[in-house]
Design a protein around this nucleic acid. Structure first.
Lengths: 352, 352
DNA sequence: TTGAGGACCGTGAACGTTCACGAGTATATT
DNA sequence: AATATACTCGTGAACGTTCACGGTCCTCAA
């Protein structure tokens, strides 16, 4: 394919009309125009209409930069998120943007990667430079959250981090993932399983910790013996190798709560390659409901979080803080979506 | 879990030091400070040091808003992207942000959903209000691109849209997905298959069109008869149902180029449920290399695009336009990743 | 008839920076 | 010694808004 090159097109960079232009054309002072665009009360209906008409005609739009300079409020919120695109953060990010805009706020996002002690303060500075009115941090990892706690920022900061607690400086909000993990495990228990293992995520991730905690709690509450727990790294690869090991050591449990759908995927492949059938020989429940998980072999029973709702709540809380309102919020609850990868224990058959 | 409420912490909203504060403390004029932070030449080494020291001490940081107001350059670039989080766009988005920041630009993103004729102009206005210096549009769909073409914007616009062509106003850049599709199909041809079907994506998506075109071209060039082509909607569900139909009608082809990994997933499940084995009975190649595709059953042969590189190139081109440089770029080429879902035709076995 | 009060509108200043210009030294050139 | 030239630095104005104040006119009650 041919090389292409591009020069900016002869910019029709006509100056945008200002409040003064409108004022002159409407035969009023700039202050009156200002009053109109801020719909302040002290302006008569006729002049208001006249100004409005001119605004319409010349296509005037308020210059946010100038407004920001004088009010020191930018109507921009910053979003700080992890650069490694795992499943959860991305959905949240998009939902946040959309909701923020519906509330009249623009969004500027900054991604960070390790080492967080360096990247997070730098990112926060970037956001501060832009002059954001508030910041939402999507912090899936402990180290990232720690870096945020240690930083001092001049604007309200809200963190989305499963199971982390609020500090005076930063408010923390999250989906109730522990409950989600409980629900997954409880589902297995309800199915009559007693030997329930957990292939966990990394303990350096909030999600990993919290989901493990949920699994433990459900088992404890049911008076069962805790099954095997292997801490991993979220990757299908790790899960696959763990599955292989379980098979070769003859330690395949009745049921497994996998910390994520991708983990479940690796497990399933390891088992399938060795004649261990899911769900006949081992029941599996995942977490995330990633796209396609309903077409895994077998379709995966899993837990879904409502990112839209999470984002909605987060934005409400943050804007409340920014605008000086007070907002109450209870954590969201995830939902269990039952498919084919987990079946009752009594239907279980030993491998041929 | 208990309800929580949050009020912004007693804001230590001390005014940030300005150029004047620094000037006073350093015993120079504000203009000299300005020169230092813009490292202009006309300042002696000693005063420069003195000013720098004060800047350090009081923690001065340039106010981007003020700079933007006077220069009418914001060093912010806008990213317009589709709100439906399909695989490609998201990876590109994060890479873009990171690269932009490395070049000293902040990023504000806006997502749009249908109907684009309404949402796109509005989104472009939002970006214009913020005062971005340039815009990158991630436009997977035809309708979205059309809306962008029709809009008139005062800043350089670059669109990432597979196979779309540039217009005077908007430069278009993309991964060479047609080549990717060709490579996938060619792989099947090299494997000795002659009856190669395509389960396509939606023709309203650039990716769908271009990948289909690549499939057609490869087949044509090899002098083969075009196989079955079914146009779908990217969903595993559609692919699953198509797979079911193929089986029941006894029209399962030798080989299939699936427009996406998720499409492949649906196909595989439909076949697996009916005793049609992949790859023994039918070879399948996907596209995207989504996370976990190496742990599908069987691990999927697929095509991977390098979003990082795509983003890199896009940013270079856009910043070139913004800053008035001229930049040449050749489209990226994707890579074929060979795994287990496609095997030579001669190893193919008819179903028992 | 005279204030009082409200409705409506305008002027000056400020936000923090850059741009355009000019002024004062020291150094080099003739 | 006088002038030109570089180097260094400062002043005024501007960017497009909002904020704080003040002024004019009209209405209405005492």
């Amino acid at each position: 394919m041919a090389q292409e090159s591009w020069r900016p097109t002869a910019s029709p960079r006509r100056r945008k009309p200002s409040i003064n232009d409108v004022a002159r054309l409407a035969g009023v002072s700039y202050q009156t125009v200002s009053r109109v665009i801020n719909n302040a009360p002290d302006v008569s209906a006729v002049t208001r209409d006249r100004v409005l008409r001119v605004i319409q005609e010349v296509g005037y739009r308020r210059n946010r930069t100038a407004t920001a300079l004088v009010t020191s409020r930018s109507t921009v919120i910053g979003i700080l998120t992890d650069g490694s695109p795992r499943f959860g953060p991305v959905g949240t990010l998009m939902a946040l943007e959309s909701l923020a805009r519906q509330n009249g706020y623009a969004t500027t996002v900054v991604t960070v990667v390790e080492p967080y002690e360096e990247s997070v303060p730098k990112a926060l500075d970037t956001l501060d430079d832009v002059g954001v009115d508030g910041i939402i941090v999507i912090a899936p990892r402990l180290a990232m959250a720690a870096a945020v706690w240690n930083a001092d920022v001049r604007v309200p900061v809200e963190m989305i981090a499963a199971g982390a607690s609020s500090t005076p400086n930063v408010f923390t909000y999250s989906e109730n993932q522990e409950l989600g993990a409980r629900m997954a495990t409880q589902h297995l228990i309800d199915l009559g399983h007693t030997d329930i293992a957990h292939i966990a995520g990394s303990m350096e991730w909030f999600d990993g910790r919290v989901r493990k905690r949920g699994w433990e709690a459900a088992i404890r509450d049911a008076g069962l013996e805790p099954g095997l727990c292997v801490e991993g790294d979220w990757s299908p690869k790790f899960a696959y190798e763990t599955g292989l090991r379980l098979v070769s050591e003859g330690r395949v449990p009745q049921a497994i709560f996998a910390v994520s759908d991708h983990t479940a995927l690796g497990l399933i492949r390891a088992f399938a390659e060795n004649g261990v059938r899911v769900p006949e020989d081992v029941s599996i429940v995942g977490f995330d409901d990633v796209e396609g998980s309903d077409y895994f072999l077998p379709p995966l029973t899993t837990v879904r979080q409502d990112f839209q709702e999470l984002a909605q709540a987060s934005i409400e809380v943050l804007l409340g803080a920014v605008e000086g309102r007070e907002v109450d919020r209870t954590p969201n609850v995830p939902t269990l979506v039952v498919r084919a990868s987990a079946i009752p224990a009594r239907l279980r058959q030993t491998s041929p």
